[in-house]
């Protein structure tokens, strides 16, 4: 495991540490003994069949889901019941959802400025300048004054990415960002994510886009029934899976 990603240089670089994580929905054991370390600048792709717990895992990382056992530490702060810890962690993490979840009653620009204005107490002008810069980065600044409902799915998802970037996060979580998109729009979103990766953002991405995974990931994690079955560098993962379950999965989707 020493050869994971070229960017792993220093043990202190560890930005997310998950130790022995267990989670239940009622009596259903969704996550079992998950251990994962994410280093600064690393790009991790999580794949696996539906119901394998991959979304739940990344939703635990910013405590949209609560875990019952184990530890999650995000840049030095452990996620506990303490509201202060949770908001601390959330400020460092941006998240993008499968269904975009832009706020439909606010303009694109207001969607972006909401958190900076209220959490960072940024003056409106400054927040808007920041938002416009980010919209430009995802190439959608010409739509800033529209309502989210007027945009296409791909555009909405790019706005959602910009919104997540507004709080200047250290890590980005993507929960199947292209699953709800028309095929013609997948690429524009993946391009933006790839650009982010290129700029050195740490990210964890749940996706079924294996081509994308191959291109940008430093590490691919394969999950099934709540466990991490296999993790490896992309080329080895695809060419030489160690477990039969992984092999079967890859045979199904490639």
């Amino acid at each position: 495991m020493a050869m994971i990603g070229e960017k792993m240089t220093h043990p202190n670089d560890c930005i997310i540490e998950i130790i022995n994580l267990n989670k239940w929905f009622g009596n259903f054991h969704v996550l079992k003994n998950i251990n994962l370390k994410v280093h600064k600048g690393e790009i991790i792709v999580i794949c696996g069949p539906s119901g394998s717990g991959k979304s739940t895992l990344i939703r635990c990382i910013n405590r949209i889901e609560k875990h019952q056992k184990g530890k999650i530490i995000v840049s030095g702060t452990e996620l506990t019941e303490k509201i202060k810890n949770v908001s601390n962690v959330r400020r460092n993490i941006g998240m993008v959802f499968q269904s975009f979840d832009l706020f439909p009653h606010l303009t694109v620009l207001e969607n972006l400025t909401l958190a900076p204005c209220w959490i960072l107490k940024m003056p409106r002008k400054k927040a808007e300048a920041l938002a416009m810069g980010l919209l430009e980065r995802v190439q959608i600044h010409d739509q800033a004054f529209k309502m989210p409902g007027q945009l296409s799915g791909g555009q909405q998802q790019r706005v959602a990415i910009a919104r997540a970037l507004c709080m200047n996060p250290k890590v980005m979580l993507f929960d199947e960002p292209t699953s709800a998109l028309d095929p013609e729009m997948v690429k524009e979103v993946l391009d933006v994510i790839q650009q982010l990766a290129h700029d050195g953002m740490t990210m964890i991405c749940v996706t079924h886009e294996m081509g994308f995974a191959k291109q940008v990931a430093n590490r691919i994690i394969f999950m099934d029934v709540g466990e991490i079955v296999e993790e490896n560098q992309p080329d080895l993962f695809f060419s030489n899976p160690r477990w039969d379950r992984t092999q079967k999965f890859l045979n199904q989707i490639l």
Partner: peptide
Amino acid sequence: VSKGQIEAADAIGLKQWMVTCFV
């Protein structure tokens, strides 16, 4: 109001009263 809206608002770091009032 869908659960996703509240999760998205949580995820960008809004406090609970802000989630209620603005989202």
